[in-house]
Design a protein around this nucleic acid. Sequence first.
DNA 1: CATTAGCACTCTTCTCTCCAGTCTGCTAAT
DNA 2: ATTAGCAGACTGGAGAGAAGAGTGCTAATG
Lengths: 338, 338
Amino acid sequence: MSLAPRQKVILKIIIDRYIFDAVPVASKTIADSYGLKISPATIRNEVASLEVEGYIMHPHHSAGSIPTDKAYRHYARLVAEKSQLSLAEQLLLYQLLRSTKGEIGQWLKLAATILSRFVHNLAVVTLPKMAQCRLKHLDLISLHDFAALIVLVLYEANIKKRVISFHRRVSQEDLTRIANRINAACIGKTSIEITTEELENSLLEKEVTKSVIDILDSENKAKYGRLYIEGLCQMLSQPEFSNNSAIVRVLELIDREDWLQSISCPNLNSGGIEIIIGQKNTEEALQDLSLVIRQYGIPGSATGIIGVLGPKRMDYGKTIPSVNYLSSVLSKSITKYI
Amino acid sequence: MSLAPRQKVILKIIIDRYIFDAVPVASKTIADSYGLKISPATIRNEVASLEVEGYIMHPHHSAGSIPTDKAYRHYARLVAEKSQLSLAEQLLLYQLLRSTKGEIGQWLKLAATILSRFVHNLAVVTLPKMAQCRLKHLDLISLHDFAALIVLVLYEANIKKRVISFHRRVSQEDLTRIANRINAACIGKTSIEITTEELENSLLEKEVTKSVIDILDSENKAKYGRLYIEGLCQMLSQPEFSNNSAIVRVLELIDREDWLQSISCPNLNSGGIEIIIGQKNTEEALQDLSLVIRQYGIPGSATGIIGVLGPKRMDYGKTIPSVNYLSSVLSKSITKYI
DNA sequence: CATTAGCACTCTTCTCTCCAGTCTGCTAAT
DNA sequence: ATTAGCAGACTGGAGAGAAGAGTGCTAATG
């Protein structure tokens, strides 16, 4: 059932207000502010039907109204279509993002920090990642006679390293020779394509190739690249986290490396923004929280995600366009690094 | 003034007990437990002199005793000399540490996780780092015509990368040639030694060399290598953090990248364990906490640190030998990676 | 018929008090 | 030197009461 226009206005006021000060909104407050020319009594009637429709609830009998998950979702859908950052805000974020150079990881971390400060919640950004990693360059560097460092440069400018041990002495010359051979044969290939090659002449070469495939495979298995999380204390300063069991729940969640992987985000691959509010979260620890995330990067090639985690009572009107904007900035700038 | 033997016993009981259950210790509790054959009244007399000496205090007039910073320091000094992990504990930690392979960062992170679970507090471990970084290997990998990825392998198996942009087209062949020349001339050198070289023939080579020096320099500037922090929620489950302003204070501290750098640890470079309790911390946010850290690695070559952060009321008897033991294990195993 | 004023009722929150429990500090006795 | 005993101090929780905020309902109003 659709809401009457005035109900929509009242609902919006309740949500805005509650997002602002985290206090249940009284009918008098609604009537007073915002120049609505109706009395508290009328508002109470409307609020009663909003409650029947499941958009608001009361924490106790004689308390003001607070929005339900349904209301937040309704609100977020509206906001996602309409809200944009002002030019000044866009410029601010853009300028802040330019203040580092060089390393993509540092830069994405900066992006997360900026986002978290801007929306006062926790920000997550992942390194961009290919669906199937391809080898760009291989180095073998002798550590000592019986061990070497494998350095793998992937497309997306990502670097993986691993130590490999040998049962016999191996010189740097041997290693260089093997690296050259593998580079010549495997550059641009995925782990599957490398397996089909039959380049292994020596046992050593075979061993190294196996490690390379192993590294590529383990990289492929991950849904996202390395995760940067910033602004924990931004989020935890929110009144929702005044009792510390809520804090511990969040900390335990993000202590787990894979928490982001287990969240299902159907819109993400199509490039849309994904807004998961409250109970809709499959992850139990997230059921009092909201997650706003979006993909960035070059679809089909390297993609990462950027997003915000916070209480359901987050400022969607600011958060959603911020994520959208930063996602597009990252998408454009990422080509520099790849 | 030195304490009488019985005072020492009582003091130890108070500290042990308070570390165990975080509740002020009453004279009756002391008398009852531990088979002391003296009455609460006698104990109260002794406690009174302990208070005069500054070893204990009372949170309010008729409350039990809690240890002061001075008491903790006294206690920690004793423990640091005597305590050792049991063989079973050593074996446990050792086995747990073997469960990963390949990448040093992952391994150190695992070490931090194990330590934090073991002592129920926050653990910090840094990547080992040379006082002066030396170049081990340089790679230049073309990203596109106008940009390349500089990959620097340092001793300590540490890898640094940076994107460099050019004003004209540069092919992979050019890059490889430059990389070979720089490798030939600079391997094993520090940033200072490289500057004195006069190998820059082309503008391009000059530019790359400058970047290399820059990367080495910025690496030199840092006091410690990359920091791994684990077990935040272990620490925050302690009763000391039941009010969340204490939590936010800690979070704000470790959000700052450089917090560890600003702590002065005179014992660290001589290889000893450093125990900084309460007010002795220069960092204000740490003044209610204790930090137990120690160097590991190969002095003069690559060294890192490993330590534990927790409330002053931490289990020094377990924490100190754990840090000691893990530091020595890391020192031995680190050679595999370097 | 939508709107509103008025009022009874509910629930929270703050403060105050009281009481039981805990523990110390002191004194006098051993 | 040690201890028993007791007064006094402080905490923490329970309970009561009052103030305040806000709703739901009803009846009146334009």
